[in-house]
Amino acid sequence: MAATLLHTRLYIASQYIAVPTEPLTLYNLDNLNSVGYRGGEDVYLTSDIDISTNLDWLKGCTVEKDGGTGKQKTGVIILVDKGEGVVDVFYFYFWAFNYGGTILERQLGELL
């Protein structure tokens, strides 16, 4: 996720907005909650370069033989103990890119 943030731009309603604290990182991402007209709800990030060029950072990390990714984190599991034997478990996995086909006559790209 950190590599992806370094290659994105901040937008509201298709208008570029300067990031309050540059560069945008995992440690200051919460600053976007104060941007925009609805407390960050109208903010989105998009790539600042052509993703169809198959960039190395967009392809993610290499999975090791044991299934690990070393120091690079690609997902997270959150456990919430509700008490009385009830536990909520949330699984999150991050993809920097997901092939989206052709939208509005524009192919969104495909990683090889």
Rank of each mutant, 00 (worst) to 15 (best):
T74D: 03
D50Y: 01
D42T: 00
T69F: 10
K59T: 11
S47W: 15
V89W: 02
D56R: 09
I77R: 11
E64Y: 11
K65R: 08
K71N: 12
I77W: 05
T74M: 02
I49M: 03
Y37N: 14
G75W: 07
D88A: 03
L55P: 06
D56N: 14
D66H: 06
Q72C: 14
T74R: 04
F92V: 01
E64V: 05
G67T: 11
K59A: 14
K73T: 05
D42M: 00
G39D: 07
S52T: 15
G75F: 09
F90S: 09
V86G: 01
E41H: 11
G36L: 08
G60C: 07
V63W: 01
I77K: 03
G60T: 04
T62Q: 12
G85I: 02
I51N: 08
G75S: 14
D50F: 06
D42R: 00
T53L: 15
V76R: 15
C61A: 14
D56E: 10
V87R: 12
Q72G: 03
Q72M: 07
I51A: 06
V43W: 02
G60V: 10
K82I: 06
S47D: 05
C61R: 07
K82A: 07
G70H: 12
V63T: 13
W57S: 08
G68E: 02
G39W: 13
V43A: 04
D81Y: 13
D66T: 04
G70Q: 10
E41F: 01
I49N: 05
T53M: 13
S52H: 08
G75T: 05
I77D: 06
D48F: 13
D48S: 15
L45W: 08
V63F: 01
K65E: 10
Y93P: 00
D50K: 09
W57R: 12
D56M: 08
E41W: 02
V86H: 10
G67Q: 09
K65M: 00
T53V: 11
V80R: 06
K59Q: 13
I77Q: 05
W57Y: 15
K59L: 11
K65N: 04
G83I: 09
V63A: 06
G39H: 12
Y91A: 00
T46M: 10
L79P: 00
V86I: 11
Y91N: 02
K82D: 05
C61K: 06
V76T: 10
Q72S: 09
I51W: 05
D48L: 06
I51G: 02
F90R: 10
W57H: 10
C61Y: 12
G36F: 13
F90H: 14
S47H: 07
